[in-house]
Design a protein around this nucleic acid. Structure first.
Lengths: 262, 262
DNA sequence: AAGTGGTCTAGACCACAAG
DNA sequence: TTGTGGTCTAGACCACTTA
């Protein structure tokens, strides 16, 4: 095992109050920030760091787990620890549900992803009738049953988003909305054809760390939060006609909104 | 040291492929999810878990660090590990910059927090002239110098947000905007008085894990992401007159937007 | 003083990846 | 086969909290 290039990483300060594993994490973080390690680069192996700093392996692993928690690095069993590359982000503009975007045949997700040069996919499509949770029921004005449409979105084969749409069953039953493929323009186009002219959407945004099940579904690296977006669609009569509950890999999205100053 | 109440936590499955520390984390997580431990409750001590599961202390600590990374628990040195309480959230509505909200004497943050029954504070106020970063400069249309207004917001003595406003220096110099207290209605009211009638705002939202410096400024528990919001204010002539770069504790905020369906 | 979590050591064996 | 990270043990000493 070769020694580290001198100057790449410094020495520990034995007089410092700062714990050794934090000092090591600080030095690695600084080396990444200053570009001495670039995106995708392999960090020194645990054994090399043990040698360089003359500490035990657990101390080194503790340092690396800090960086992993910060989302700076990820480890690959048998290969090494790497600086996490920043994935391409999907920009969601606030006009993404404008009526003019519902005219085409393809889904909004597909059109937009292809325009950005990515390969879009949708899988795990599942449509079924359900009893809504208390929260969803309240948002929809209290229906006893809803149609739930679940699906997962991928960009370049990487899962980025999992979404569930809830539509009051009395609106959706025996309509194209209850079909796996609701047709051009998606369910919003179908709702308008059924006489529910859409007026506006409310979106609620939260961010938090993912649950284990979300880690699995979105194949999230550690240190990547999720953005949780709940959108409610209202028709011109003020009725909530759909709630869409979406969980997104936070490193794959930038949300963008325009607010009037009025 | 007393043994754990029987039935509170189960036994390990030695035939399982799942690592022991993950099984322990799973059981603790399930106990929290099912309400057997409530917000603020103390989990069994490390020593009790070592006894209960007959594993080494490092294994138990590894389990607890998983839950900490998920934001489910937090530890207090000398006291124990506790189920993390959900703090009160601040709801930001999309009309929060409407002109009618700029009429009062107090700042929007203060008014809104007091209405919600919280104690608002603003500290670390700092106003100075700077050379803008490349990103800020581009957003503002390329000024060579800007006025930077930094401040930290607290609710009930807990820091929740750190914000920096950048205003092109030619707009702000020798105006109330360059004063620590810009007066009633804040800098937006002053910009309008100076003839820059505001037209709309663009907001960009990202989420990620905090940097060490953000952890310090916002006193973030581990497992809490930040929401990074960048707002650009435009006047009726289409000129960008301010960029506000805001980092928020994600567990303290729900952002809410209204989108037209047009 | 007793109990708690925080840090650190010096090993061990395993599973995965690459040559 | 060698090098990598993943899991686990059985200790040790420390710092903080509570009583």
């Amino acid at each position: 095992m070769a020694a580290l290039p001198s100057g790449l990483l410094g020495a520990l300060d034995p007089t410092s109050d700062r714990a050794v594993f934090r000092q090591i994490a600080d030095q690695l973080r600084e080396a990444i920030d200053k570009g001495r390690f670039r995106e995708g680069d392999k960090l020194p192996s645990e054994a090399e760091l043990v040698d360089h700093y003359s500490v035990s392996r657990m101390t080194v692993r503790n340092s690396l787990s800090i960086l992993q928690g910060e989302g700076l690095v990820h480890s690959e069993h048998g290969k090494g620890v790497f600086v996490r590359p920043r994935p391409p982000v999907r920009r969601l503009a606030s006009d993404r549900f404008a009526r003019r975007h519902r005219e085409q045949g393809k889904s909004a997700f597909t059109v937009e992803a292809e325009a950005a040069g990515s390969r879009p996919e949708v899988d795990r499509l599942e449509v079924k009738e359900e009893r809504p949770s208390a929260d969803i029921s309240v948002r929809l004005g209290g229906p006893r049953r809803v149609l739930a449409r679940r699906r997962r979105y991928l960009l370049d084969h990487r899962p980025v988003e999992f979404a569930v749409s809830y539509i009051p069953l009395d609106l959706a039953r025996d309509t194209p909305i209850a079909e796996p493929n609701p047709g051009p323009g998606g369910i919003y186009a179908r709702l308008e054809e059924l006489g529910h002219r859409l007026d506006h959407f409310d979106e609620e945004i939260r961010s938090r760390m993912p649950t284990p099940s979300e880690v699995k579904t979105l194949q999230l690296a550690s240190g990547v939060p999720v953005i949780h977006l709940i959108r409610t669609a209202y028709d011109t009569e003020g009725r909530a006609v759909e709630v869409c509950d979406t969980v997104m890999a936070a490193d794959a999205y930038v949300l963008s909104y325009q607010l009037p100053a009025t």
